[in-house]
């Protein structure tokens, strides 16, 4: 038996919107720790890891570990029927081939049940060890989204370089080139507007902008984004989900031919 009640149901709606462009089908794993998902895009270039910790739910009951295969577009269709202020409860019985999403309006005057068919998904689970990164950049998520969008109108790839001067996002295309440098800036009114660069050593990596743009669909989940870079690892683009966990996107770099 599984029953997860999330008062801030809009979080779940935002999570689905953040990942459904990247991943079509995925297994949602429920355990005592929380509600999680790990999935790669169809070309195995990017990976998304989601964790919503059990403590973040108003009610969390998960009698045994359960993996539920879902088509994310179908989940999204269901969750779009929930109001932004609705309380969402996810329910499933052991061995059942369906999951139920229950939506309650804030004043309890409307209650809706949406039952969705589960599917068998044969997915690979990758072990991602903790790593020391050469550079970690924290910046406003809206700024990062803007940069990715702007650069993708010029080129297909972005070179992200971190030096003592700051973090530079560069691209080149048929019509020309573009460079955007963000300097460390801690002297802002609100901490979420700061750009903070922790650099062990300079690093420069190239990535496909298409994926970066897809990651920025998670912008509504968090005011800040953390970009962790090392020359021998995929970049990690992390959006913290307040009080609950995170959504992390891993993207393999491009290398010179």
């Amino acid at each position: 038996m599984l029953e997860l009640r999330l008062v801030q149901g809009s979080l779940l709606k935002k999570v689905l919107e953040a990942i459904r462009e990247l991943v079509t089908d995925a297994n949602f794993d429920c355990s005592a720790t929380g509600f999680s998902l790990q999935a790669m895009d169809s070309s195995h270039v990017a990976l998304v890891a989601l964790l919503l910790r059990s403590e973040g739910f108003e009610h969390y009951r998960c009698d045994r570990n359960l993996s539920m295969g879902m088509n994310l577009n179908n989940v999204s269709k269901m969750l779009r029927c929930a109001g932004n202020n609705d309380i969402i409860t996810v329910k499933a019985d052991d061995g059942s081939d369906t999951v139920t999403f229950m939506f309650e309006s804030p004043n309890q005057d409307k209650i809706a049940d949406f039952e969705m068919k589960l599917m068998d998904i044969d997915s690979e689970h990758l072990g991602i060890p903790d790593a020391e990164y050469q550079a970690i950049v924290r910046m406003p998520s809206s700024e990062f989204a803007r940069i990715c969008k702007d650069l993708s109108s010029i080129g297909d790839t972005v070179i992200i370089s971190v030096t003592k001067e700051g973090v530079k996002f560069s691209t080149a295309g048929d019509i020309g080139t573009a460079n955007i440098v963000c300097r460390q800036n801690k002297t802002v009114d609100k901490p979420e507007e700061a750009t903070i660069i922790e650099m062990q050593e300079p690093v420069s990596l190239t990535f496909a902008l298409r994926y970066m743009n897809s990651f920025t669909k998670a912008t509504p989940l968090s005011e800040t984004v953390t970009i962790s870079l090392s020359s021998d690892l995929p970049v990690v683009v992390e959006y913290k989900i307040a009080e609950m966990g995170y959504i992390r996107f891993y993207l393999a770099p491009k290398i010179e031919e």
Binding site: M40, S43, H44, V45, A46, L47, E124, H125, L126, G127, I128, D156, T157, T206, A208, L233, P234, Y250, L251, A252, P253, K254, I255, E256, E257
Partner: peptide, 14 residues
Amino acid sequence: TGVQLSITEFYRSE
């Protein structure tokens, strides 16, 4: 421009 690496070149199946 460049060769796109795969995530599975960095992380192994559990």
